[in-house]
Design a protein around this nucleic acid. Sequence first.
DNA 1: TTAGCTCATCGTATATCAACGATGACTGCC
DNA 2: GGCAGTCATCGTTGATATACGATGAGCTAA
Lengths: 114, 114
Amino acid sequence: MTATQASELCCPPAKDQADLRPVEGDEADEELATLSKALGHPARVKIVRLLIRKNACICGEIVDELPLAQSTVSQHLKVLKDAGLIRGDVDGPRVCYCVEPHALRRLRALVGGL
Amino acid sequence: MTATQASELCCPPAKDQADLRPVEGDEADEELATLSKALGHPARVKIVRLLIRKNACICGEIVDELPLAQSTVSQHLKVLKDAGLIRGDVDGPRVCYCVEPHALRRLRALVGGL
DNA sequence: TTAGCTCATCGTATATCAACGATGACTGCC
DNA sequence: GGCAGTCATCGTTGATATACGATGAGCTAA
């Protein structure tokens, strides 16, 4: 791997433990709304896809892939992080972003529960 | 059925034809963002659930179920309708709302495609 | 026709979002 | 220490979103 490629710095194999929280009720509604809102912008959808496709991604790589300023991308990353959809691990001067697989599973469960 | 209950006025059995559109690419990203954005508010999640649970629903019933003004609910319904998630059929002085099953399936496919 | 009911739309106020450039914090290298 | 690179945050601007009351449009029944 090269220095400009994200690696296994973050994103551990993610032990698959079941999520036993209900997919209905007020809390589930809030959760689904929060996750949906985070995905409610094309740029953020693209970011999530990018992170999935490359498994992990340095912030700079994401900026290169999108027609947006670095500060704007950083803002979108913050929205996704606040929603729990992605994680950012500091790697020296860089930050390695990756998706939170359990959050994605949770979203699928909530949407499937509709 | 009583006058205050939604019936089979709208929501036909919905013939199950497969959706062949891709779950990736720019168009899919826009679509997922649009649908997600529409679900990105707790009140709208509750509305969708209500419509699913009752199969269909008169606008007034929805207003009764939510702690929001009628005009606000109407606005949320418009957002959901514009996103294609629900449909509203006029029934005399009332409007019968119901979910668009294919839109829900499409959302599941798009989220599943992540 | 009139009255009443249901719902959409308008107008408005406040809050949040989305985008950018500029700046600051932090790291690693010389 | 000083410098370059990477990314987050700040400050700002314009656009949307959210909520409400008030009003209007359309139907039904009297």
